[in-house]
């Protein structure tokens, strides 16, 4: 039960520097707890209330809009160097509520809840009438494109066999008929050139992730698979990722269909945030 005067909040300007600092700390927290999809950047602070907190400090209660970047959450690139996904690429927005404690000059997030949603088809069409929209990740063409691209990557790979972790986004392009996919992969204890049964391969204890972009184009009598994967340095127990390895690219013709892999994760629009306090 409160003693003395009731706690009252103040409402600073949403663009107040201290409010922005709290929002940036919250977005950093969000990105460090996302386990799939892409990092998000701060777009707009919708609302802010600042509550006194006993015995010390203040709590910022924030409403924040974010935008999806092109950096996958496994990509160690600093957020400041990640570009925002443009409307023509079918942007994805995040809508977040945060509570951020400021104490002794330090910000720490005590509550986070975010939902994300893709921009409307109408908005994309307004900017780019011919641009492909985001496709369902369980579309058979998407599933096949990811399988074919990963198989093509593993065939050209002299190291570990890589498994699919998630399909992150996909677009169906009408002309030329092709499927664009982006997906995350992880190294296993199998050697790519020797793998007989991918189901028996296990992820390495020191997780080594990668991120791939691929286009599978329908051709007469087959298809062309163009895939580029960036493999990141292995992650020790404390996740402090280092700069990325050189990019590996292959461009090969592959006869459909490729081998089976684990199912894709939920749609790109789903955003999973780690433990809430």
């Amino acid at each position: 039960a409160p003693h003395g005067p009731q706690l009252t909040y103040s409402q600073p300007n949403c663009d107040d520097p201290e409010t922005e600092q709290a929002a940036l700390a919250a977005v950093d927290y969000l990105n460090s707890h996302l386990q799939q999809g892409y990092k998000h950047v701060l777009n707009q602070i919708d609302k802010v209330k600042v509550w006194p907190r006993r015995p010390f400090g203040v709590i910022f209660e924030l409403g924040v809009d974010t935008l999806e970047s092109t950096c996958h959450v496994f990509d160690p690139t600093a957020l400041a160097n990640c570009t925002v996904r443009q409307v023509a690429e079918h942007a994805v927005e995040g809508d977040c509520d945060f509570r951020v404690l400021k104490q002794d000059g330090q910000f720490s997030v005590v509550f986070a809840k975010c939902d994300s949603s893709p921009d409307s088809a109408e908005d994309v069409r307004k900017v780019c009438p011919q641009c492909p929209l985001l496709a369902q990740l369980n579309d058979t063409r998407v599933v096949h494109a990811v399988e074919a691209a990963l198989a093509a990557f593993n065939v050209q790979n002299n190291g570990s066999y890589f498994q699919l972790v998630e399909t992150s986004r996909a677009q169906l392009v009408p002309l030329p008929p092709s499927t664009r996919v982006e997906f995350a992969i992880a190294a296993t204890d199998c050697v790519a050139k020797e793998v007989a049964d991918p189901a028996k391969c296990n992820l390495l204890a020191e997780k080594q992730y990668g991120f791939c972009k691929a286009t599978v184009t329908e051709k007469l009598g087959g298809e062309e698979v163009a895939v580029t994967c960036t493999v990141f340095q292995p992650q020790p127990a404390a996740p402090q990722p280092q700069p990325a390895d050189p990019t590996m690219s292959v461009l090969v013709a592959v006869d459909p269909p490729g081998p089976a892999f684990p199912p894709a994760g939920p749609p790109a629009a789903a955003m999973v945030v780690g433990p809430m306090v």
Binding site: Q11, P12, N13, C14, D15, T19, E20, V41, L42, N43, Q44, I45, D46, K47, V48, L67, V84, V87, A91, V92, E93, D119, D123
Partner: peptide, 28 residues
């Protein structure tokens, strides 16, 4: 025709609403 000159309103500092804040990229 002759028209009366308009009465100028008081010009003061523009007060922006405190929230929402600026859009950094674009609005979805």
């Amino acid at each position: 025709g002759v028209t009366q000159p308009g009465v100028a309103g008081a010009v003061g500092p523009m007060v922006l609403p405190p929230c929402p804040g600026r859009v950094r990229h674009f609005k979805v």
